[in-house]
Simulated scan of single mutants.
Amino acid sequence: MAPITVVEGRRLALSNLEKVLYPATGFTKGEVLHYYATVAGVLLPHLRDRAVSFLRYPDGPDGQVFFTKNVPPGTPEWVTTAEVPRVEGPSRMVLVQDLPSLMWSANLVTEFHTHQWLVGTPDEADRIVFDLDPGAPASIVQCCEVALWLRERLARDGIETYAKTSGSKGLHLLAAVRGASSERVSEYAKELAVEAEKAMPRLALHRMTRSLRPGKVFVDWSQNAARKTTAAPYTLRARPEPTVSAPVTWEEVEECGSPGRLDLRATDIAPRVQDYGDLLAPLLDPERAGRLP
């Protein structure tokens, strides 16, 4: 029987704590839960009021991996949910609003993915995101080059940009925006991706065509569509090791000279938060949100 833990007055059954989920490092489910509890202070603000999709991997990244958007069966009644619009009709999704709901979700063994809008204003995007995905032999080094170009280009439009690792091979760029629909943000993001390809034709690519991607960085602008979700800041990823989609400084991006330079794992994050705080905190300040031209 799973041990019962009380988190801020909520009773949680946390199961299989000794189960190894990342065989390459021996990282257990208990350590996954400990990680999420440790980073809750910086993670929760980026989840709050956003419908959450879960990428679940209950037997580790080498086992079955599946995406859950609707409220999972057995969800406690105290977990907040919300009806969200979908192309195929509205559905009900989980909101991770507090530490108990975070730990309940983490017990399912999840990556956390969110839309670029809040549940209260689904018709208005409050984020723009670029997913920079390298095609071998390109690596995160080339992603950093493209990221620096995009940072300067966005700055010319008065939009301040922040970077985080994808937790996989690439890099994510994020900025807070206001006053625009997801459709308009997508159009703008595509315009910049096309500009990047024109400015750096040997390095950047705005099309998903697989045959074009070797040696280049795909500037994926499509995740700004209202239906799309992106890995949330500080989420663990279902990779061979417990890597994290973690914020990085622009100095780290500028100095990235080797493929493994920005690999960040669960054990790296608490010391970084201690040193830097939440590098993505400005995204949460409405006064710092930019307006699209």
Rank of each mutant, 00 (worst) to 15 (best):
A2I: 08
T5E: 14
V7A: 13
R10C: 12
A13T: 14
L17T: 09
L17H: 13
Y22I: 09
A24D: 15
A24E: 15
T25W: 10
F27D: 03
V32E: 13
L33E: 11
Y35L: 08
Y35S: 01
Y36W: 11
A37K: 10
V39A: 05
L43K: 05
L44F: 04
S53Y: 12
F54R: 03
L55M: 06
P58D: 04
P61N: 07
P61C: 02
F66I: 12
T68C: 14
K69T: 06
N70D: 15
T75L: 11
W78Q: 12
P85V: 04
P85C: 10
P85F: 02
R86P: 01
D98H: 08
M103I: 15
S105I: 07
A106C: 09
L108T: 04
L108A: 06
T110K: 08
E111I: 03
F112L: 01
H113L: 15
T114E: 09
T114S: 14
V119E: 12
D123F: 11
A125P: 00
A125D: 08
D126V: 06
R127I: 01
V129D: 03
V129P: 03
L132V: 10
L132P: 05
P134I: 11
A136L: 13
A138N: 05
A138M: 02
S139W: 02
S139N: 07
I140A: 01
Q142F: 04
A147Q: 07
R151G: 03
R151D: 08
I159N: 08
S166P: 03
G167C: 00
S168H: 01
L171G: 01
L171R: 08
L174Y: 14
L174I: 00
L174K: 02
A175Q: 08
A175K: 07
A176T: 02
A176C: 01
G179M: 04
S182A: 14
E183K: 06
E187K: 13
A193S: 15
A193Q: 11
V194G: 04
V194E: 13
E195M: 09
K198D: 11
A199H: 10
P201R: 14
R210I: 05
S211D: 06
P214R: 01
G215N: 03
G215C: 05
V219S: 00
W221C: 09
W221L: 05
S222T: 14
A226C: 06
K228V: 04
A231I: 07
A232M: 09
T243L: 04
P247R: 13
P247M: 13
P247Q: 10
V248R: 11
V253M: 03
E254G: 01
E255G: 02
S258C: 12
R261D: 15
R261P: 02
L262R: 07
L262G: 14
L264W: 12
L264K: 07
A266R: 00
Q274N: 13
D275P: 01
D278G: 04
L279P: 00
L280S: 11
L280F: 04
A281T: 12
D285P: 05
D285Y: 10
P286Q: 15
E287C: 12
R288Q: 09
A289T: 10
R291W: 09
